[in-house]
Design a protein around this nucleic acid. Structure first.
Lengths: 146, 146
DNA sequence: TTTAAATAGTTGCATAACTAACTATATGCC
DNA sequence: GGCATATAGTTAGTTATGCAACTATTTAAA
């Protein structure tokens, strides 16, 4: 128990997640540089829809670790950009099924490439084993707080 | 070089930093539960000021990895809450020196305790060595993108 | 010394987060 | 069938972020 005790003064960067913030910021910049005018948050929603669309907003909430109002507005903005469509579910009139448009599909390949490049840039000099291990720790943290 | 290549489909959680988001969210909840009505962002600014106050907003930017408008507004809100004071620098009239108030000092001990408890909760079941290693990776990521 | 460039901070605009309160529809129990 | 409860989604209010444009002051160079 005392061996995962954090010393005061080391708390800060772990809590604020400055590393992931930095990655997201860099990815945003790289998108912009390529003339791709979507936010990271919008991209992270598309990311799930590319894998599978026609899912409800609630399922998008679960997949992207966001609450319902956040998804409502992200979908609002993505719809304004004509990247997704809300389609009322035929079987449950409470639900919207979210579909990506052709315009969004055109973004998939290139943005995933940029994301991959950005991530490799971020992880330069870190061994594959260390990355795996860091991912395990972060997953454990997430599970602990779920 | 190919050994720190990320496979597509694993990108997402690393980029969005869901672990650090979860920690921050939990800390916010724990503050609230104790009747402490400040945001994590406000706390993260106080965190630096407790270590040393009377520093400029620019120094706060550097310490807390934020841009100037963000600090302007955080200091605005902290000032409204009477937790910090802006004092014009006597030697450089462009600068504000930021001081914490007695009310803020009263929050230090308890909030640091809560942060420590929250972090230990988040890191339950993770060995000290793994934590160290994850921190090293995150620091490297941050340095790579700086 | 006066003028250009750098620095400190603020303001406006757009996007996004969380909470709480709300509407509409579906489900389940009597 | 009818009513309570759960679920899906939206809206409003506050805080925060990033970018760009702005003011005020300082510094450095011509």
């Amino acid at each position: 128990m005392p061996n995962n005790q954090f010393k005061r003064g080391e708390l800060y960067s772990f809590i604020t997640g400055m590393a992931s913030t930095a990655i997201a910021r860099r990815l945003q910049k790289n998108f912009k540089q390529e003339g791709i005018e979507i936010t990271i948050e919008q991209w992270s929603v598309l990311y799930h829809l590319w894998k599978q669309d026609g899912i409800s907003q609630q399922e998008l909430c679960n997949a992207s670790f966001r609450d319902k109002p956040s998804i409502t507005r992200l979908v609002d903005n993505l719809e304004k950009l004509k990247l997704v469509k809300r389609v009322g579910s035929p079987t449950d009139r409470r639900m919207n099924l979210i579909y990506v448009t052709d315009a969004a599909r055109k973004l998939q390949e290139r943005t995933m490439e940029i994301a991959e490049i950005t991530l490799n840039e971020a992880l330069k000099g870190v061994s594959a084993a260390d990355i795996e291990q860091a991912k395990t720790v972060l997953q454990q943290v997430y599970d602990n707080l779920k």
